[in-house]
Design a protein around this nucleic acid. Structure first.
Lengths: 206, 206
DNA sequence: ATGATAGGGTACGGCACAGTACCATAGATG
DNA sequence: CATCTATGGTACTGTGCCGTACCCTATCAT
């Protein structure tokens, strides 16, 4: 079965629908988005959509997973330590913010937040794959620096959370609420301050 | 005109509807909430609701304003400086978190975030009256401490943002996404760490 | 060529909801 | 007692949308 169809494999077909779903859910959120709109953009018919996805909720879950992928890939698989503590932290913070403040990320954040009471597992997944993954990555790096004697941190995970909290500062919340997006200067300031403070607190050399 | 009606003044009537609206919007968010549900809880009829509020959106705006009031009053009008820098910061962080992590606050945060692309002025208002107000209050206090020679901070507003960012850490985001609410221990840890770091960075005595 | 199958197009059932219209009633006014 | 006004109750209109059913075409196997 699964004989090849003309315009593309089943996988490609599914991806087209998924991409359209991403656009629509980003634009309208979950409740206000309509499956018909997805069909309109993807081409084809509802029948096909419901062939690949159980229902609207299932499509939304797939969309969220897809966006998490898109979001996290530029952050790289692992933190390397070629450039020293300061630059590593600074670099990580920069990537983190640039991802978090993209239009896509903000839009999907809004959509997931809106539905996280109705679909709790969705909010959980989004956190784990997005901000939570970043925390774990940094925490792992900090533990390594602990072992190397560069840092002295008791609870590396809490420290990582706090670092990202400092980096985010108000920037993310303000962007989420639609206040004007921060400029490069704001980002730079927030990151460099966070790094300074973090190092002053934890670096054994200081 | 506006002759007295039986069960209460017009103001009271409006307040009852508003209170019902708060409950319903908190429970369902904006889009999924229905005006009929508000009517059911407030008693009376749709006609009366639409007498006091232009439409669903207007009711929602009033609800958000009402909740902002409810939220911010326990934070008190002004920061006093009776207890020294450490205790003042610690106290402020505690109040801040306890407000931010209330069920009500989380629910209305979700609802406002969800609609902030459709109703940008709403998101803006919510931020200004909520987290933004806290930032301004702290910033003012920090400036005062600057003048008194206790602190040495160039940009007090940024410092205030960063302080709250540290205090929030991941706690708020995780709560928003419906991961389990942080325990008292988590709050204490986040706050005390934030205060320590902040003072170590900015206090002239250190 | 003939049959089978997947998928595009469309329409529909069922439901929910925003906002309005209408009627009956309870109190206020004279 | 008579009239008027405001409001509760309810039905209605118009709209939108999820999920399914049906028809028809285009491709593939034999």
């Amino acid at each position: 079965m699964a004989s090849n169809v003309k315009p593309g494999t089943e996988q490609e077909r599914r991806d087209v629908i998924l991409a359209a779903g991403i656009d629509v859910f980003i634009e309208h959120g979950y409740t206000s988005a309509s499956v018909d709109e997805v069909v309109r953009r993807a081409g084809g018919s509802k029948r096909t959509v419901y062939k690949y996805f159980d229902n609207k909720k299932g499509l939304f879950a797939a969309v969220v997973a897809g966006i998490c992928d898109q979001m996290m890939t530029p952050l790289g698989p692992e933190i390397t330590d070629e450039k020293g503590l300061y630059d590593t932290l600074e670099n990580l913070g920069r990537h983190y913010l640039s991802i978090l403040l993209q239009d896509h990320s903000l839009a999907i954040y809004r959509a997931v937040v809106a539905e996280s009471s109705r679909f709790p597992e969705l909010g959980k997944a989004f956190y784990e794959f997005g901000p939570g993954a970043a925390v774990l990555r940094l925490s792992k790096y900090l533990s390594l620096q602990n072992d190397l004697g560069v840092l002295k941190i008791e609870d590396t995970e809490s420290a990582a959370r706090q670092y990202f909290g400092m980096v985010r500062s108000d920037l993310h919340m303000r962007a989420v609420f639609g206040l004007q997006l921060p400029g490069q200067k704001d980002l730079d300031q927030s990151i460099s301050r966070a790094v300074d403070i973090f190092i002053k607190e934890y670096d054994l050399d200081q």
